[in-house]
Design a protein around this nucleic acid. Structure first.
Lengths: 336, 336
DNA sequence: TTGAAAGCGCTAACAA
DNA sequence: TTGTTAGCGCTTTCAA
């Protein structure tokens, strides 16, 4: 009836080896010395029966599921698989599995995903979402599950923070253009002032300010985080009375849209229009000209997140929430 | 000490509501009538305590973990996230979570991932790998866990099969070129005769045979499944005494490499060389000219896989292994 | 309509 | 070096 085909239990192994279940347990996880002869008999029995410890039962007893939850908007967005891989790089060798939930950025789904993770007794949670407020994470904090938040700036009790240096990266991208003599630089931004995009605008403005350049609201356009949005935003900039000769885009996908806009206007890139992206997604090397961009190292972020979780789980870290900033790196290619 | 902050148990809820744990259980999962008044008291208690059923404990008792394992080579390859999403489309609403393991195509890692999934008591497994032999799946079959294999052709007891129509798709791609007057058509293939690539060669040859064209071994080059491999293979074809004017590539990544090869030789695409890809990855629309290709619908494959698993889990399906073939669709763009 | 009791497979006191 | 016992939180007979 049930889908399990009568799997051998620790008791069966014990009986076959002629020892107690306790001894089998200790032979397996070495928390207590077991004589070589006994261990051998146990191992033989395990092999003979094809025994595998039931992780659920172990988890129930130890209240550690050896699983961590990863809550993200959409695994289909190439940034997140990289993040997931980085997490696994660190957590896998430590014996943790990853349970992934997609939320599509919906706040209700985010909350329900968190609930389900808690119900599954995950040992830790990596939460990568924009629209979540501090109070949404309280259920996890209340039950004492370590949470690492990916992105955002909010420091919150019980929640470590990992994010890329959006502000510094955007500043560096802008400086790169300034150094090449571009005075009027446009910024193609996301729809609102939330999330990493906001930090990127801040960096852009900071770089201008360093050189004594005042911000020009006309040069900042708000549009969608998409290829079409990038094109529309860039066209808007190009339609200005004094259009910019260089643009910084909030991400690579939008920068590819900026490329589309240049092609439509018959502008050469970077000759007539220089374009900077952000993220260094795979596609950045597929378009022509290839995108000059800031590398946003998803895998490294995932690894940092994994280490943080591991430290909290082992009790190595127990202090107040930490903030880890992963630097972005300038990748010089052809578009700027 | 343990990382769980003293979570409320069903017993606590029962006490607060003034009923037995049994009643709380039934109030929650409705396997037995509970009076409206009692149910209300139970729900109130649950809300007051913030109770969430412990999925591990439930799983231990019912021997169903409500989790399914997804074993893939690499979540970083954009095909697999789509697959994972398709699985979740179907399995998520049914209350299943997904546990993902990356194997990097390593057979030992594949076997160990399978072992771990079994140890975790997953209710079903989706296995997407090339290098696995039939006997590697036996551990899962032995314990009665339904397995769906993604890709490959091997019909095996206890293992359902889902794959795209690699053979038919490649035949259609080839026919498309034949219809446009190309007589000598090259095929850029993977390193060996295994996996979906093999089926694609078969389809290519079948289409040629339909028109009475004999196979020419010179026109089939073996190379790596990568952009660099695609370029190298195409250059080899172009170096032939009578080079083909059209090539079919085993996947889009290789087709992008073929584009590189054409650019290097100064050939116009599709004027001097027509190029067909396979898969329709996102990048297919980013390159210039955009790739004409066969869409390999990963998400649909994932959904089909999820339905199959669900049928096996619910007992709806219980017969011999099934084979589901998802058709590939021709996407006309610019490269052919 | 409800409860009491047993037990899923494991580990951790405690005891020898 | 090893065993006995209890119990993690839940569901499921069996009984009322």
């Amino acid at each position: 009836m049930t889908p399990r085909g009568d799997r051998p239990s620790i008791g069966r192994v014990a009986k076959l080896a002629g020892v107690s279940a306790t001894t089998v347990s200790h032979a397996l996880n070495g928390r207590r010395p077991v004589s070589a002869a006994t261990r051998q008999r146990v191992m033989d029995a395990i092999a003979e029966l094809g025994y595998r410890p039931n992780v659920l039962a172990r988890g129930l007893r130890t209240s550690r599921s050896q699983a961590i939850g990863l809550i993200i908007p959409d695994i289909t967005n190439p940034f997140y698989p990289m993040l997931a891989r980085g997490l696994q790089d660190v957590l896998g060798p430590a014996g943790y599995h990853e349970i992934i939930s997609n939320t599509d950025g919906d706040r209700d789904l985010e909350r329900s995903a968190l609930d389900q993770m808690i119900a599954r007794q995950v040992d830790g949670i990596a939460f990568a979402v924009f629209h979540t407020h501090a109070e949404d994470l309280l259920p996890a904090i209340d039950v004492g599950v370590p949470v690492v938040r990916l992105g955002g700036r909010l420091l919150q009790d019980g929640v470590d923070l990992v994010h890329s240096d959006d502000e510094g990266g955007a500043a560096e991208a802008t400086r790169y253009l300034l150094d090449r003599g571009y005075g009027r630089i446009g910024f193609v931004c996301g729809p609102d002032a939330q999330g990493p995009a906001a930090e990127r605008v801040t960096g852009y403005l900071a770089a201008l300010a360093e050189r004594g350049l005042p911000p020009d609201p006309d040069l900042i356009v708000h549009t969608h985080f998409s290829r079409a949005g990038g094109m529309a935003g860039t066209l808007r900039l190009l339609g200005l009375p004094r259009p910019p000769r260089a643009v910084v885009c909030a991400n690579d996908v939008m920068a590819i849209g900026a490329l589309d806009a240049a092609a439509r206007r018959g502008l050469k890139v970077p000759g007539d229009l220089a374009i900077m992206g952000f993220d260094d997604i795979e596609a950045a090397t597929l378009v022509s000209p290839q995108l000059t961009t800031m590398a946003n190292p998803a895998r490294k972020i995932g690894q940092a997140c994994g280490r943080l979780l591991l430290d909290r789980l082992s009790g190595t870290a127990s202090g107040p929430p930490s903030e880890t900033i992963i630097p972005a790196r300038l990748i010089r290619r052809q578009s700027a």
